Every structure is written in C-alpha cells, then in structure tokens.
Simulated assay, not measured.
Amino acid sequence: MPDLFSPFTLKGVTLRNRIAMSPMTMYRSVDGRMGDFHVMLMGSRAAGGFGLVFPEQIAITPDGRTGTSCAGIWDDSQIEGLARVAAIIKDMGAVPAIQLGHTGRKGSEKKPWHGKTQLPPDHPDGWQVRAPSAIPYGGRYPYPVHALTVEEIRDLHRAYAQAAGRALAAGFEWLEMHFAHGYLGASFFSPLANQRTDEYGGSLENRLRFHREALDAVRAVWPERLPLTMRLGSDDFNEQGVQFDDAVRAIGMMKEHGLDLADLSLGMNTDEVTDLPFGEVAFMVERAHRVRREVGIPVGVSWNLGIPAVADRVIREERIDLVFLGRPALSNPHWPHWAARELGHWDPLSLLPEDWSWWLRNRPGPEGSLGWPPTATNGPPSRTT
C-alpha cells in the first residue's frame, strides 16, 4: 500500500514521494526571464522534501502571460534562467517540472496587490487578449476579446511545441499543460467561452480539438520517456458550462493522445457559479478518483490538502496518486519534512538533503529534541522499508 512518502514512477521518471509543489505565479520576471528569486524559491522547496517542484505557469507567447512580470518561454534567451531553476531543483533531490500555458481572455492583468483588474489594450503594460470567441469574461475582465482564427490556433500549437523544446533544453523532466482556471485551454473546453461554429466549437469533441492538437504537437517534441500531463478545468459549477461528466470523457480522449496523468482542477470560466465547495477539505479528491477508476490514468489534485493526515489518507486509500500543494508550500518550505514528523514517519530527516540532515542528526542536546531519534512522544514508525 502506498503512502504520502512512497516513491511514484511515471514513464521514465521516479519521484521520491507523492508531494508536488503546484505552480504559483510570483510576478518576479523581467521580459519573461527567471532569476535569483526563482532559484531561491524552487531550490528551497526541493531541499524541503517535495518530490516534484513546479515554477509558475510559463507563458508560451508574450500575450499568454497574466501580466508583464510573469515568466515566459517564447524566446531562447529565457532558457538560461529556466535552466538554473531546473538545475537547483534536481540538485536538491526533486524532479523539475514545468507548466506551459496561455492565459487567453484573462491576461493583461495588474498584479493582485494592485487590484488584479484587466488593463486595456492601449495601456503600456496591456495587450489585446485572445480567446476562442469574442466574449469578454466580464467583471474585472471587461475589455473586448479577439476571436482566434484557425491559422492563429495553429500558430499557438507551434508555440506549444517550440516551448516544449526549450523546456527540454532547460533540463525539465515533467511537462504539464495548463488548461484550467479560465485560461485559453479552459475557454476552448467551456461553452461559456467557446461559441465557435467551426471545427473548434460546438460538440464536446470539437471543443477538445484544441487540446488534442496541442498534446500532439508537444508529444512530437517531448520524449516519450518523460511524463506529459495536463491540468484540466474539470467543472465550471455553472449549468451552462463544463460538467464533470464532460471532464471524464475529455481525459479519456486525452489519454489516447499521449496524456500520462490528469491534474484535475476547476474551470473558472465565469464568476457566476453555484455550489462551489471552496471551503471543504480535499473536495476534488472524489472527483479525481472517479477519473482514475473509469479512465485508468494516474491523477493528482490540489485544493485544501495541506493537512498531513488528510494528504496521507487519500494516497493510502489509492484515491489519487499525487498531492499538489500551493499555499502550504509557500507558507512552509519544509512541508514534507514537517508532515513526516506529524505522521510519525520512520525517518523524517531522510527527506532533507544529506548535509542538512547530518547536522540535524548530530546536534548536541537532549535525545529527541529535534524529533529524532523517535521517542514515545512522536510515535512509532508508520511504515517500513
């Protein structure tokens, strides 16, 4: 039986545990390039014991960013910074992962602490946003949307493939495509945003054509030995939008096009939602388990999984294969090590780099003062090796 700290192998890649740091936009890039901040952030989380570490969503084109301070991979000059990030993640014992994306009609934003509202196309830091149909998101995204032509869609698929080639050159070993959260892929999937009448709109199969062709373009570049995964907006929580049944069918189609793991998340194609269980612990787990069971593909989810006992339980029960942590990873760079101590793991220091763990094991003072060796207060080993 697996647990939170069991290795996980997908294709030719083995993670040391089932804990992934989710991509989170940090607004620290200049001209799409990553720098010292990103090396520090990702390296510290890898050193803290995470098995899989993502930087933020990486834009495949300049207009695919959330804002002008977000990271990109549309130019060869951006490879150097990404390579530094991938190298430190790997050096600290984790697998370097990259998430490719395009924000679609939710791009051209101010930073969240400046209001997270959309900038008009004529603003120096704004641009004309694009989507499957000329339908503004609404609310804080009020500006007109350019409906993509078929040739522009094909250009985007070429951009995905070129980005995958740069990701490979930078040393990443796990590639995820971001088709959730109201961004471009999510908007093609959802009838709320996609009202096209050509081969990219209408039926479920047509609305998923963008995804299938993007997967095919990336897989032609990305080696078969390395995982290719997708974060899918699996439910709009709106009667007119994507329903979870659609997502189950969608993952089945994507599996036929080389998808290795499904990262199930929310659609977020409208603010007009009902019954969204944001406050519930692990609310996406049962949905992901259905995909795992019916489609026969490994799955992972995020959303309210930061309680170690909950994260461990859903892995032990084989409901999901990976736990994705966002805010818990930001608030505690050593979350895996802390979780191991909380759960009575046989050797929580084994999750840290060898040099760090050596110093902690050999600290002068009362036995057990750092939670090692195990004592009656921190419990017996929870698993054997």
Score class of each variant (00 low, 15 high):
324 F>A: 02
130 R>F: 11
9 T>I: 09
136 P>Q: 04
92 M>Q: 14
324 F>I: 07
279 G>Q: 12
311 A>F: 04
39 V>N: 06
294 E>A: 08
313 R>L: 11
69 S>R: 15
376 A>I: 14
197 T>D: 14
317 E>I: 08
158 R>F: 14
190 S>G: 03
83 A>H: 05
54 F>L: 09
28 R>Q: 14
353 P>M: 09
332 N>A: 13
330 L>I: 13
150 V>D: 15
2 P>M: 10
370 L>C: 10
326 G>V: 08
249 R>W: 13
305 L>E: 00
295 V>I: 12
355 D>M: 13
131 A>E: 00
357 S>Y: 07
149 T>R: 09
51 G>F: 00
239 E>M: 10
244 F>A: 05
148 L>G: 00
68 T>V: 15
181 H>R: 08
182 G>N: 07
8 F>W: 03
144 P>G: 06
328 P>W: 02
349 L>F: 08
117 T>L: 12
44 S>A: 15
128 Q>V: 08
374 P>Q: 11
177 M>V: 14
173 E>W: 01
350 S>F: 09
183 Y>M: 12
169 A>V: 11
134 A>Q: 08
206 N>D: 11
86 A>Q: 02
154 R>C: 13
222 W>M: 03
109 E>H: 13
45 R>V: 07
284 M>R: 07
318 E>T: 08
131 A>H: 01
45 R>E: 06
127 W>S: 03
257 H>N: 10
81 G>I: 04
177 M>K: 03
7 P>A: 08
237 F>K: 02
